[in-house]
């Protein structure tokens, strides 16, 4: 089975900058998610409108939210790993 060795005490100089980045990305996603909920609440008829390639806004926005979460996850991990490698050298 796959096991990793346990690092018990971690000092992380990148913690503050990673947290800042996390909060930023969180707010970006929250705004986009809120947009979806607000359309549903105040302009639900908009959801049925065809946007492109024969797909309506509900489908494109909904799929988009799922794909965006994955993409942002990868960006975050890439940035964090770089920060850790840079700041935790010693």
């Amino acid at each position: 089975m796959l096991h990793e060795s346990t690092v018990m005490k971690e000092t992380d100089n990148a913690a503050a900058r990673k947290a800042k980045l996390g909060v930023k990305l969180f707010f970006i996603y929250t705004i986009i998610y809120a947009g979806f909920v607000l359309i549903g609440l105040f302009k639900p008829e908009l959801m049925g409108l065809e946007l492109m390639a024969g797909q309506n806004i509900a489908i494109i926005y909904g799929f988009g939210l799922i794909v965006l979460a994955i993409v942002m996850g990868f960006i975050y991990n890439y940035a964090c790993t770089r920060l850790e490698n840079k700041l935790n050298k010693n």
């Binding site: 996390g22 990305l25 998610y33 996850g73």
Partner: peptide, 8 residues
């Protein structure tokens, strides 16, 4: 979407 909160 909840995972975004968890991750970030």
């Amino acid at each position: 979407a909840g995972w975004v909160v968890a991750l970030f």
